[in-house]
Every structure is written in C-alpha cells, then in structure tokens.
Amino acid sequence: MNWVALLVGVAAGMAVAFGRVYAERLVARYFGLVPPLLFKHRDVVVPFLVLATAANVYAIWITVAYGGIAAWRLSALIGLALTAAAQLVQLHIALRPTNRDLQLALISCTPYVYLFALYVAALATGRYSLWLF
C-alpha cells in the first residue's frame, strides 16, 4: 500500500463529501425542509464519495507510477479516462444533489470494475502486468 496516495485520497474524498453535505444543506434550506426528507440515500452516498475519491486517487497512482502511462498502453489510457470521468460524475453528485444519486453513483463505479477485470484476467493468464493491451 502507498500510504501517501491513500491518505491524500481520503482527504480529497472528505472534501468532496463535505461539498455534498454543504450542497444538501443549501438545497434543503431553499425548500425549507430537512435533508433526510429530500435525499433518501444520503447515508450511503456521503461515505461512498469519500471511498470513491480515495479509490480514484489510488487508481491514478497505480496507472501512473508503474509503467502503464509511461509505456502508453491502451488499457492504461482507458483506465485513466474512466477514472477521470468517474471523478467528474462524483463531483456532480456532490455539488448537484438530486434524487438520481444512486444510479449516477453506480455508473461511476465503472473504472473499479474495469481495473478489477484487468487484474483477474492478468492473474488468469499468468501475466504480471495489469496493462494487458
């Protein structure tokens, strides 16, 4: 484990989560309601934002530090692009709380599934790199 990447990721994730709760508060005040009434899945979405941002930072470190980007592997570039897109989606979730949060969050999990599939394929084929193509 790279503790620098992990801790920086958690800090960034907490910043995003703070943005989420702040935005929820503004929206709830606009409607004159309390947030739990407006956002049913906030108990999952707030920790998800911390976890997902930490995972994004760690995935970027994985891609950049160990030759995936340096070798210009297509699989690594796809992973990086998916991670960046997921981060944008999560920022959108954080700053524009809506009732479609759950679906958006689920969609933003694509890069993790992609990386894990690469990992399983690498193990199965006896290769020692995630960057298969």
Partner: peptide
C-alpha cells in the same frame, strides 16, 4: 456502492 470502490484496494 460501498463495495465497488474497495476493488481498487
């Protein structure tokens, strides 16, 4: 949602 990001770790 709480499981998928942990795949990276």
């Amino acid at each position: 949602l709480l499981f998928l990001p942990t795949l990276v770790f």
